[in-house]
Write a protein that binds this DNA or RNA. Structure first.
Lengths: 110, 110
DNA sequence: ACTTACCGTAAGTTATGACTTACCAAAACA
DNA sequence: TGTTTTGGTAAGTCATAACTTACGGTAAGT
């Protein structure tokens, strides 16, 4: 299981329905039917979304009897956060460098 | 222009090709043809990707003659970062509360 | 003026993923 | 035992989005 893949995390979060399900998860595990209740989609659809979330590392499941309980796994967001931070530091530093380099000048390539 | 929408940012970043284009942008603006060079897709495809990135607030463009120059806009990542941070603080705090509530029990994460 | 370079957009194709219903397996309960 | 509850999976439908080629429009070069 290759946990913590940026592509998988983004794919998991980009769908509004699935993101909503993710947001509705908490530290206490909840059953699939419970999570499906009150939603405009079927229980199998919710089940499919939960599988995607789990594969992405954003949720974990524990079976209790016939029930399958899902909980949020916020640590799963770590890699995406790191990905974003890379640009914050990288590019903002690069920006500062560029600005000081370009002071009073215009340059173009070709 | 409704800048800074989480859905748009996620949509913009989830496509690997578009994310790669985003990552190839820097503080110095580059022309579309230049960005398309060396990629396995056509120039119009790159142009379409850049439009999505710009609409999401992740890139900015400036015209110079017939050329359209694109640069990264890292500030555009702010809202997504805030979105993620919400879960870090929210849920981790909630976790701490749960943990202290469940003290004396066995917990097995990771 | 003609030609070239650069780029956005329209239209059409195709792959993918988000749903549905139907089905099956396993555990709880009578 | 039979029945109910719970939930994963298979199969099929449908919408969308990532590409392609074709085209038009504008600025620069000759």
């Amino acid at each position: 299981m290759t946990y913590q893949n940026t592509q998988e995390i983004l794919t998991a979060l980009v769908d509004p329905t699935r993101r909503d399900i993710f947001e509705s998860l908490g530290p206490e595990a909840r059953a699939v039917s419970d999570l499906a209740k009150g939603r405009p989609i079927s229980r199998p659809a919710v089940s499919q979304h939960l599988k995607v979330l789990e594969d992405a590392g954003l949720a974990r499941s524990e079976r209790r009897g016939t029930r399958n309980l899902y909980a949020m796994r916020p640590e799963g967001l770590a890699e995406l956060r790191t990905y974003l931070d890379r640009f914050w530091s990288d590019v903002l530093a690069s920006y500062a460098e560029e600005v000081s380099k370009q002071q009073g000048q215009t340059h173009d390539n070709d």
